[in-house]
Design a protein around this nucleic acid. Structure first.
Length: 569
RNA sequence: GGGCCUGUAGCUCAAUGGUUAGAGCAGAGCGCUCAUAACGCUUUGGUUGGGGGUUCAAGUCCCUCCGGGCCUACCA
């Protein structure tokens, strides 16, 4: 049995994620996990919150809470929303877990043993008022180049020139506004990625089947300028994983923590340990250690394009550099951005629709279907309320929902609420079975390849085929002269419902469950179109389901568009 | 500035260098009456951003110009 390890980029703890975040990692990862499970693979699907770093500390301060409490609360919020969207994680962990502390410190120790860590003494801006070192972008001042007075320490947004914080005129803390700043000497650990450039480059070159988006970003970092640069993996912060060399102290690094991008991907591994410690699994190393059973695991990661450098270079450098037999990623599925009504979704500006808001107005299936069928796979894509309304009304209500409705109600009216006996499948049914088998093969091919939009289009075509059949067969007419033949047609069409439920479940799990439930069967992936479409025995009872997808009317759409047009308060 | 991605029908997107560039939606017409005024069939719609080049053959490869986007290493 195939074994698939799936991770979604771990969402940052700072606030509720918007639909762009969702469609860029967690949702497609869930689609794939559900599909692979349905196909009989053994799947471990992991996600977690990414809790460290300056923004988490600031968000906690803003909320007036200790950072650990803030993170715990936000984890609970995100976990509930993940549940609301039916994200089927085997475990939803936390990068602040003790398991991740231990493992991150372990990796650092191994990298030090391998000579891949060097200490760097550097100058950084310290804010007395904020009592913290400030990352470059948390320093504001006047741009020496263009005079813009809100230039950041890393770059001026006005003239786009790259800056060093010390270039700024009248620098101030972006957090407090304080100008009581000081340049201090501080010591940090750097991961010697440059020493691993050739190894990483060869590894990337071996991934000919990866999306262009993924490999081109990696190559850029490998080859640009002087090539792959060493990367600082520690920070002067309070909240984070204390710098240790394995379980030993790291002299000179007291009071410092690991950089969030060092410990966050390690959480993918630690999360598996959390999964076991939570009593959900027995052995996590068989998923992660190629010397302990993971040699036949296929590991697939999902992420937005901004995450690619860390997953193609930094994290692999950590794994390879450790010298230990950890599982490396086999396939990276990366996504572009989903835009919102002519601009970007923005967490910091509160622009767009956020996960909690989305669930407050419509069930998860609406969002899952629309977002996945418009996943930004090849370029940025755009959410508009008009398109959303039009697409979900047509696809879910008219094509799928109405199909289920029309055939179950027809059967109830003519034969009662049980699969009718009588008659036999003829050429029409045989032809459709062959057509559906071909479509099923294509659908599976797209899902195997994680071609999400193509898979969605094929699934939709499979739904349409049911309506085409009913129109061509016309059991309501045939019934008048040949009730047995009409019974066979009806039986055939009823059999399409469990077939659709199985195939649709990765996209719209709740609707799939209600379809299967109405037909009195479990959601199951079909072995073949022929077997599936003869599965319901004559006499098998069913119920006419409630309206599966209510339509979004124009007034409601307009109201939502207005409600979500501004900035979230 | 540099790098990468992208530009195809009104909209959203397809198309291993190989017939006449295809789907869905929207629009138009017809049909059906089982159904959530749903469904089905037919159909309108293209100088593939502009220009040049390579090739027997270019949406696809090369050059150039124009537009959009992302990244550019201390936000994550």
């Amino acid at each position: 049995m195939a074994r698939i390890l799936i991770t979604s980029a771990i969402p940052y703890i700072n606030g509720i994620k918007h639909l762009g975040n969702l469609v860029g990692s967690q949702l497609p990862a869930d689609l794939y996990a559900r599909y692979m499970r349905a196909r009989g693979a053994e799947v471990l699907f992991l996600c977690a919150t990414d809790e460290h770093g300056t923004p988490a500390e600031l968000a906690a301060a803003k909320a007036g809470k200790p950072v650990d409490q803030y993170c715990a609360e936000m984890w609970a919020v995100q976990a509930e929303l993940a549940q609301g969207f039916r994200l089927s994680f085997d475990h939803f962990g936390r990068s602040s877990s003790p398991q991740n502390h231990r493992l991150t410190q372990h990796f650092a120790g191994k990298l030090a043993e391998a000579g891949l860590i060097r200490e760097v003494s550097e100058k950084q801006v310290y804010s007395h008022a904020d009592k913290r070192f400030l990352p470059d972008r948390y320093i504001e001042g006047t741009c020496p180049n263009c005079g813009y007075d809100k230039a950041r320490g890393d770059q001026c947004e006005n003239c786009t020139k790259q800056l060093d914080p010390t270039d700024l005129i009248n620098p101030r803390s972006a957090i407090s506004g304080s100008t009581d700043l000081e340049v201090r000497e501080t010591k940090h650990l750097y991961l010697r990625q440059s020493a691993m450039r050739d190894e990483l480059s060869a590894w990337i070159d071996s991934k000919a089947d990866w999306p262009v988006l993924t490999t081109s970003i990696a190559r850029k970092w490998l080859n640009d300028g002087d090539g792959l640069q060493d990367r600082g993996i520690t920070r002067d912060l309070d909240w984070g994983i204390p710098v240790k060399k394995g379980d030993q102290p790291w002299p000179g690094m007291e009071g410092k923590v690991f950089y969030v991008w060092f410990d966050a991907p390690i959480e993918y591994i630690a999360c598996a340990a959390e999964w076991v410690d939570a009593g959900k699994g027995a052995d996590w190393e068989r998923w992660w250690r190629t010397d302990k059973g993971a040699q036949d695991v296929r590991y697939v990661q999902f992420m937005g394009k901004d995450n690619v450098p860390f997953h193609t270079l930094s994290f692999p450098a950590t794994i390879l550099g450790s010298g230990e037999p950890w599982k490396l990623v086999d396939y990276i599925k990366s996504f572009n951005y989903l835009n919102y009504d002519g601009g970007q979704f923005s967490t910091s500006q509160g622009r767009g629709v956020f996960m909690d808001q989305a669930l407050s107005i419509l069930p998860a299936d609406y969002w899952r279907w629309w977002l996945l069928s418009h996943a930004p796979e090849t370029s940025d894509s755009e959410f508009t309320w008009e398109a959303f309304q039009q697409d979900v009304n047509k696809d879910l209500a008219d094509v799928l929902g109405n199909f289920v409705s029309r055939i179950t109600k027809f059967c109830r009216a003519k034969f009662g609420e049980a699969v009718p006996a009588g008659g036999a499948y003829g050429p029409q049914e045989t032809a459709l079975i062959a057509d559906l088998q071909a479509r099923l093969d294509r659908y599976q091919g797209h899902m195997d390849a994680i071609e999400i939009r193509k898979a969605a289009a094929e699934l939709r075509a499979i739904w349409v085929a049911g309506n085409e059949y009913l129109q061509a067969a016309g059991p309501w007419t045939v019934f008048k002269d040949d009730p047995d033949r009409a019974a066979a047609m009806t039986r055939f069409a009823l059999n399409l419902i469990p077939f659709y439920a199985g195939l649709s479940a990765p996209f719209i799990p709740d609707a799939a469950a209600s379809m299967a439930g109405a037909m009195g069967v479990d959601v199951a992936w079909p072995d073949s179109a022929e077997a599936a479409l003869g599965a319901l025995a004559p006499g098998h009872a069913f119920t006419v389901p409630e309206v599966m997808f209510a339509k979004i009317d124009d007034d409601t759409r307009a109201e939502w568009a207005a409600r979500f047009s501004g900035i979230r308060g």
